[in-house]
């Protein structure tokens, strides 16, 4: 499974039990619509950082990074790109 699909599956199983994967648009704003509230965003951050090996102390996190499936995916991609820079440097 590719990463956006995996993120989507996590979000649906945690917060949107009635939904199928194709109903959740990857750009759907999960914060503005209250799917994820300010407390639950911590759960998303924990899952994302654990699943994709993002060390919490090495990245700056803003809630906006977890606004949608695509935003989360972009957040992980951005982290991976900085890490590969570090490795090559």
């Amino acid at each position: 499974m590719n990463r956006p699909a995996e993120i989507k599956r996590f979000l649906i199983s945690e917060f949107l039990p009635d939904l199928s994967a194709d109903q959740l648009d990857p750009d759907y704003d999960l914060l503005a619509t209250g799917v994820i509230d300010s407390l639950q965003v911590v759960r998303v951050v924990n899952w994302v950082t654990t699943r994709y090996g993002v060390p919490l102390d090495q990245v700056e996190i803003t809630p906006g990074d977890f606004r949608s499936v695509n935003a989360i995916d972009a957040f992980v991609t951005a982290f991976e790109e900085t890490r590969s820079h570090h490795v090559h440097a």
């Binding site: 949107l16 009635d18 939904l19 109903q23 959740l24 648009d25 759907y28 704003d29 503005a32 619509t33 209250g34 799917v35 509230d37």
Partner: peptide, 25 residues
């Protein structure tokens, strides 16, 4: 109708705290 469309509808009209945490259709 599914819950995401309803949430967008609510988000246009209600303060975020007033959008129900759980919505079942």
């Amino acid at each position: 109708l599914h819950v995401l469309a309803l949430r967008e509808h609510c988000a246009r009209r209600l303060a975020r705290t007033a959008i129900p945490s759980d919505i079942r259709v």
